[in-house]
Amino acid sequence: MALKIVVCAKQVPDTNVIKINPKTGTLIREGVPSILNNDDANALEEALKLKDKYPDTFITVISMGPPQAKDLLIECLAMGADEGILLSDRAVGGSDTWATSNALAAVIRKIGDFDIIFGGRQAIDGDTAQVGPQIAEKLNLPQVTYVQKFELSDDMKTVTVERNMEDGYEVIKLQTPCMLTCIKELNEPRYMSIDKLFGIKPEAIKVWSAADVEVDLNTVGLEASPTNVFRSFTPAPKGKGITVAGDSPKELADNLLIGLKGKHVI
């Protein structure tokens, strides 16, 4: 049985380069390179590792965005994915996470048959971590977020994953089909391969419209979005913390006390 995998990926501005206009609170996107969202690269890499092991695995990368987001799919195919589908339509423009997951769930329904959906934990431009879980809910799939380790059973029916927590991790076993959102600890994404780049067939990248995926237009786009961005800002950098020194626990406690009293905290 050939595995069928869907990877959700987003083209994002490189946040190492991007700045926020302090007056308008909006992102300055001019001249900022677009990149494959970091966690999504980990999602694709995990799918590619399965393809390395089971070569007849078929990987479809899906994305939503303006026509230039096709570049993201070229990158994913050059890394080794088999097919890319971009949902690009004015009707879905300005979607928040709820509306985006409606649209992407419709894309996946249209694809139909799949065993695993991999997505990134969150996109570096919005940092919401909501779209993956929402897709799973809308497709009625079991899901695990923050996946840091992944294993597929030999019969390909169950997966065992580690879910990263602040103070440790959970080991969770779930059945396929399922949705997993990935974090950078999961793997090291590969580079594009030059031969795969030149081998991309035009028909391997499809651009779909809202009509193609039969999505209810009342559930996508800016108008249908229940949330909107009120304001963006660059958080003021925090000052350096103070390290309290001391040779013994008692001296440390004394010094801490002196510091806190000096600042009139206590």
């Binding site: 580079y191 594009m192 391969s193 030059i194 031969d195 795969k196 780049l197 030149f198 081998g199």
Partner: peptide, 27 residues
């Protein structure tokens, strides 16, 4: 070699990357 940088401007029938000379120059 792993990422096919060693054979950019040669056809895939010889395990090249199937690219062009300008791509090779850029690499």
């Amino acid at each position: 070699a792993k990422y096919h940088i060693m054979g950019i401007p040669f056809p895939t029938e010889y395990e090249g990357a199937g690219g062009d000379c300008l791509s090779y120059a850029i690499a």
